[in-house]
Write a protein that binds this DNA or RNA. Sequence first.
DNA 1: GTTACACCATAACGAGCGTTATACTAGTCC
DNA 2: GGACTAGTATAACGCTCGTTATGGTGTAAC
Lengths: 200, 200
Amino acid sequence: MAPPLNTRDRILNAAEELFFQQGISVTGVDRVAATAGVAIVTLYKHFGSKDNLLREVLARRLDNWTRHWDEAIARATTPEERLLAVFDAIDTFRASANPTQWCSFLATASERPAPPAGQNDPVFELIRQDTQMITERLARLAKEAGCPDPASVAAVLLLLYNGVLASLLRGEPSNPVTHARSAARSIIRASAGTTRTARS
Amino acid sequence: MAPPLNTRDRILNAAEELFFQQGISVTGVDRVAATAGVAIVTLYKHFGSKDNLLREVLARRLDNWTRHWDEAIARATTPEERLLAVFDAIDTFRASANPTQWCSFLATASERPAPPAGQNDPVFELIRQDTQMITERLARLAKEAGCPDPASVAAVLLLLYNGVLASLLRGEPSNPVTHARSAARSIIRASAGTTRTARS
DNA sequence: GTTACACCATAACGAGCGTTATACTAGTCC
DNA sequence: GGACTAGTATAACGCTCGTTATGGTGTAAC
């Protein structure tokens, strides 16, 4: 159905799958190359180093996640639903990825030792960028939903969001997304101080 | 002030500090031994393997965490406060550990590849045990606080709990504990359906 | 004194990993 | 045909790491 992928994308797909399913440091570049069906030399021709490959994988994943979130927002009808669309996006994003994968940024953050203070690791920069993007979006959507304190609501939603990812990472059986969504709704309504939109 | 530590505890302390500050797979046993001030041979005499050492560190940490939680519960005065004591325990636990450390179980889960289905990794067993213990406790405390649906409240609190740990793991600047605590309180009250305890 | 024990220093083995070098093949464009 | 590009296979280098072996030191008990 899909057009045949070029070498670069095949490598990125294989790296994404292995890095975030098995762990980053435990998967060698040789296994990435083998999974992608390319030679190791080709991988290095394209990406130069494992760290660079990881960076590109993360960047692409951030793009994908943003797109899924945008689409979920577009599907929503009310401002409140638009604010809650993050959790719907988690579901569709996970469904789009082949196997069960955790949050790549969470996994990356936990595997990498903290950079030695004063040095800026480009991978850490991506992680920071991810968090910041999510926070800003949530705050904007909270404002549009009429929350009197958008920043605080955004902080709580970010907490629930991170909680969902961590729960998935831990491999908990129950579906955390639905719990997070309903909790978020009740928080939003409590924050807005209006029960006018309450329907059962 | 404290009595001089024996060799075994010195190794455990060093391993805990290095594993959960730098990452597990990136810290070698030689560095653990050097930090503890013991020979590598001694480390292996005591623990047999790195995996075994990790397991003992996790077990001890689970004990410590439980004790901190118990103390926080004992300090609380109302059933609601007892349910919210998890978040206070996070603060005191983090303060008791020397440097800023993340959730050891979260970090471990993300670094270890999933066991090959049908095989039971003892380390994974500890992680599962950790989650289960927290869930059960939260459900019991929620029941004692008069929540009509304790399981659901416990699930949301676990979500917030995981969210706090993940936020700390990501190194976010704002203090997530206070946000989680206030969000949890509003969830609990909404669940209890009673606003009689509302003050301010 | 010697036996037992806990610990140390050093070295080595074996494996895996990230990375690079060398040499080869096939298609494409002028 | 010749230059260029993209890819392959194979091998090697250097490094780190987990683990083990060997031999030695000090101390307390009997």
